[in-house]
Amino acid sequence: MFLGTHTPKLDDKGRVILPAKFREDLADGVVLTRGQERCLYVFSRATFGDVLEKLRTASLTSKTAREYQRFFLSGVSEEEPDKQGRVTVPAVLRQYAGLDRELTVIGSGDRAEIWSTPAWNSYYAEKEDAFANTDEEVIPGLF
């Protein structure tokens, strides 16, 4: 499970050190791909297999589903963490997410997300008040 907020740096070779708390779940390999709001999604191989199964259930006659699958899956990069827990973030994904040296990695339950720190700070500032003042059930049965 991926939880919390971490601030690793992107090195000159395009590698990021995964938070130590995430490494056990990602020891068998990492799957990176494009996420919403211009972040990157980080899945374990097992969890990504579950995501693929869900994508396979989408209707082939839905243009929106086909377009989503193409964009989501064409960005997939399978990576192996090295002994220091670093993974390479391919240039195409770094460009998509606007990643520079300063990164914010957040846990989102079954996945982690990699954000450029300025993008995360902007997103957080924009959404914080709405989150704090939510007065309706967003996720059924949670509260």
Rank of each mutant, 00 (worst) to 15 (best):
M1K: 08
F2E: 06
G4A: 07
D11H: 11
D11C: 10
V16Y: 03
V16K: 07
I17Y: 00
P19A: 04
K21A: 14
F22N: 08
E24M: 02
D25Y: 13
D28P: 02
G29D: 01
L32S: 04
L32F: 08
L32N: 02
T33P: 03
R34M: 06
E37L: 11
C39M: 13
C39G: 04
C39W: 04
Y41L: 15
S44W: 07
R45Y: 00
T47K: 15
F48C: 07
G49T: 13
V51W: 06
A58K: 12
S59W: 02
L60A: 09
T61A: 14
S62Y: 06
K63L: 12
T64A: 14
E67W: 01
Y68E: 03
S74H: 11
S74I: 03
V76D: 01
V76K: 05
S77V: 03
S77G: 07
S77E: 12
E78P: 02
E78C: 02
E79W: 03
E80K: 15
P81Y: 10
D82R: 14
K83N: 13
R86V: 02
V89D: 01
A91T: 10
V92P: 01
R94E: 01
Q95V: 05
R101A: 10
R101D: 05
T104A: 12
G107M: 08
S108C: 06
G109K: 08
D110C: 01
E113P: 04
I114L: 06
T117I: 00
N121P: 00
S122N: 12
Y123F: 14
Y124M: 08
A125I: 03
A125D: 15
K127H: 08
D129M: 05
A130T: 09
F131Q: 09
F131G: 02
A132W: 06
G141L: 04
G141R: 11
L142R: 11
F143I: 08
